[in-house]
Design a protein around this nucleic acid. Sequence first.
DNA 1: ACGCTCCGATACTCGCTGGTATTCGATACC
DNA 2: GGTATCGAATACCAGCGAGTATCGGAGCGT
Lengths: 207, 207
Amino acid sequence: MLFLMARTTPPDETPRTPRPPKDEVRARVIRAAGQVFAERGFAGATIDQVAAAAGFTKGAVYSNFGSKDDLFLALMQAEVTTRVAAVERSLAATTDLPDALAAVGAELSRRDPTWQLLFLEFWQRAVRDPAVREAFVASRRDLRARIAVVVDRFLAEHPARTGWNAGTLTLVLVSLTHGLAIEGLPDPDAVPPDVVPRVLADLLRGE
Amino acid sequence: MLFLMARTTPPDETPRTPRPPKDEVRARVIRAAGQVFAERGFAGATIDQVAAAAGFTKGAVYSNFGSKDDLFLALMQAEVTTRVAAVERSLAATTDLPDALAAVGAELSRRDPTWQLLFLEFWQRAVRDPAVREAFVASRRDLRARIAVVVDRFLAEHPARTGWNAGTLTLVLVSLTHGLAIEGLPDPDAVPPDVVPRVLADLLRGE
DNA sequence: ACGCTCCGATACTCGCTGGTATTCGATACC
DNA sequence: GGTATCGAATACCAGCGAGTATCGGAGCGT
């Protein structure tokens, strides 16, 4: 391996810093961690793999994160944030409840296994580790609350008399969606496409 | 652990072999694997831990299972079997459809965190590893099919006219229960106790 | 009784991975 | 331009854990 005696003559150096962007490293590592962790699982993934996927080496990772766990937490933080934002966005796009919920459902259960895998990984840690659990629960509640706001508005506008309140209805939607994803991801044939709407129809059909 | 110095005099020897049970070792190892894997995760658990939990050493494990994965598959097999048996039992106990479905739901989503953790760990591996997936999908279909048979019988007996066929209804039930477990395990307050029966009531309320 | 066989225990190997200490290069400041 | 600083690369280490080879003793057939 030869290093070219890189010259240092400043004169003609590119004005724009070809700098190895400061915290972009951090972002890239986190992104890479998302991929690798989703692919091999937290315990199954190695720091070297993450670093490589990000285009760096272990040193970069450890100079940005204290430990593997630290990296994991950072990833969860980032992922949850973007996730909540995505849901929020899809909710804002329409005023029609079924549409909105369908959008949320689609958002929550993207056929993309990556998110499901990661989410479950987070979940597992939350169940096992009280410290993680706190943050996890908070974000879940936040997510459900945001969806519930929309549901609530709809229920108010449409006096479809139903025994359901917004919170519980939201819980059912979110839970059902996740549960279906669990069945459907390894076995796509197992889940007919219109299950969620049909269930919702039954639930909202005034008593 | 006492082995009675079992005598060998054939005449009066206890008819039942006081022997250090042959394949009971296997059973104990599997049971221990269930606990340990659920507690630390598959990758996070060690063969030594499993062996110790079963009251043996690594040697016992490796003389009964070819590898860690092998043990894992065996565990899954066993778990599903006992699970199905439990469901069938709870269904046999009642003739009322809602009651029966609620019972099934309860059975499927016991607050027992062990099972949920374990199941989702299976799921993760299934999604990631094609070999595991095959076995996983097969046992899932088997599970749903068995439940569906009974649901079907009930639907036939109880002319509750509903747009749902047994298979889809079962899918919804199973999925919903799992999804609720995901929300409820880290955050018990999030899930009211009677959600499943209420949803089922709506779904079965004849159209 | 006797020895054969099986299976669990013990001890060891070996690769791997998280973490650390150090080096090296470049940016930022003087 | 020279130097201090920061962050990534490299080299390295120690522990750990899956898997293996071997040992020993308990059943079982004869």
